[in-house]
Design a protein around this nucleic acid. Structure first.
Lengths: 259, 259
DNA sequence: TTAACGCGGTTCAAATAATGAACCAACTTT
DNA sequence: AAAGTTGGTTCATTATTTGAACCGCGTTAA
């Protein structure tokens, strides 16, 4: 129910790895009739959210996406402020970091600031979705975000990325408990081997996490002597970003991060 | 005809100057029933293209816009290449420049590169739409873009911005003829007083302009001795951008720009 | 204090628009 | 040349969208 929504959902089949889709293929992916898909594509195309390559006749995301994104940013320059704050944090710590927000029930990367201090760096696709069970950000969100997120864990539909990935619901719940005491979360190779992450929540007005901010680095640079520096930077960063996005840190949240 | 399209069209009522809209106001703007508008907004909200401020209950463009824009950029990094090319042009000439594309029948700014060489600079809103009759870019597009654009001129629905703005269809058509001989267009205070612009077309595969690139500067820096530098930079820039966007320059296009 | 008005949001019969099986024509592959 | 693609079209059937009236709430005016 909701023709407009069904049309929009077609856009979700496009991804960085599948940027162009043909009519029949899209109909197959969406499990819908070709005629229906075609009409939806035409509507989206008329608005500019879809464009068709006249040579290949394949469809792709259109220019209106850029226009709308610019509009949102113009209306709401919080992301710019966040970028600036994250850049100073990057200067302090010397590692890449990324900011993610909860959209519906997925954690979507919104901003990536790459380190300029090291040539070996973690390079993140800004299009990427953070799996809740396999990243420091995801665990942080499970701990401080809407409780309903835990249903995904309980249902056990957790994807496996590396041999380190947490997929056992009990293990994850245990992990969440330690995070609740510490305030910060970490992951070591659970999404990508050799990558170490440290994350903290960003809270909304209702003191529920709306997003996360995380440092990501090659594991050899996550040595014990670096961790305190990372954690203190992460703590003030999380507080500042919470403020930028108009949120409030819960009373119970640790006033400092300790290893 | 096209529920999805009608829903999407609601997004067009949002702008940099009107970033938030209430339900009743939007219904009024769209000339539609409140119930209809509400259901459309709900669909857009579920997809994430709209979000509602829970305090004020106003609606605004949602986070999915960012996601889709990132997707398009990931699939199609031509804009990045264009940005780089424009940055070198900015270094050469020392003035701000902007890139616009024709979307349907409006000329939409896609990229702005501001000069780092002067503290007095023309600062352009990247959300802005270039009026066809009042900017160098617009005139260039009228000259080299789809002939159907001239209908807007002939209909005479041309907005007036300053005392220099061209609104007489005959004057505009004359101006277009001189542009066709020179290849480049200019404007002096016709959109904003004191701002001088120089524009050239970017062509598509069918040798029809799909966009424009333009330098914009305070009029005192558009002195006669600077114009040749600007024009030669503009010419190679237009050629290069045409190549980046996969287009072809028409045979008849001037091989050089002269004052 | 009351009345009028605006707001966001809901309801349900009536009207309209979406749907999908079958079909084309043009290409590729077998 | 036959079988399977592809993108796209058609039209009777179907199901969704539509909008006038309505609700409850908060603000403003009398």
């Amino acid at each position: 129910m909701g023709t407009a929504l069904n049309a929009l959902k077609l856009l979700d089949f496009f991804s960085a790895s599948r940027p162009e889709i043909g009519l029949s293929q899209l109909a197959r992916l969406a499990g819908a009739n070709k005629a229906t898909v075609l009409r939806h594509l035409r509507s989206l195309e008329e608005f500019g959210l879809i464009e068709q390559n006249p040579q290949t006749r394949y469809y792709a995301i259109g220019p209106a996406a850029i226009r709308l994104a610019a509009l949102r940013e113009a209306a709401n320059p919080r992301l710019d402020a966040a970028r600036l704050r994250m850049q100073t944090a990057m200067q302090e710590v010397g590692e890449s970091l990324h900011l993610s927000f909860l959209e519906k029930d997925i954690l979507q990367t919104a901003l990536v600031v790459e380190t300029t201090k090291h040539t070996v760096r973690v390079s993140l696709d800004p299009t990427e979705v953070m799996p809740l069970n396999a990243t420091a950000s995801g665990l942080s969100m499970l701990c401080y975000g809407p409780p309903a997120l835990l249903n995904q864990v309980n249902k056990g539909a957790l994807q496996d990325f590396t041999k380190e990935t947490l997929t056992d619901p009990d293990q994850i719940r245990a992990q969440i408990e330690t995070i609740r005491n510490r305030g910060w979360s970490s992951s070591n190779g659970s999404y990508e081997l050799g990558v170490h992450g440290f994350a903290a929540p960003i809270f909304g007005i209702d003191r529920v996490a709306i997003g996360t901010v995380a440092f990501a680095m090659p594991e050899n640079r996550a040595s014990d002597d670096r961790v305190p520096v990372i954690l203190t930077a992460l703590h003030t960063l999380a507080k500042d970003l919470t403020a930028i996005f108009g949120g409030q840190v819960p009373e119970a949240f640790p006033p400092e991060f300790h290893p």
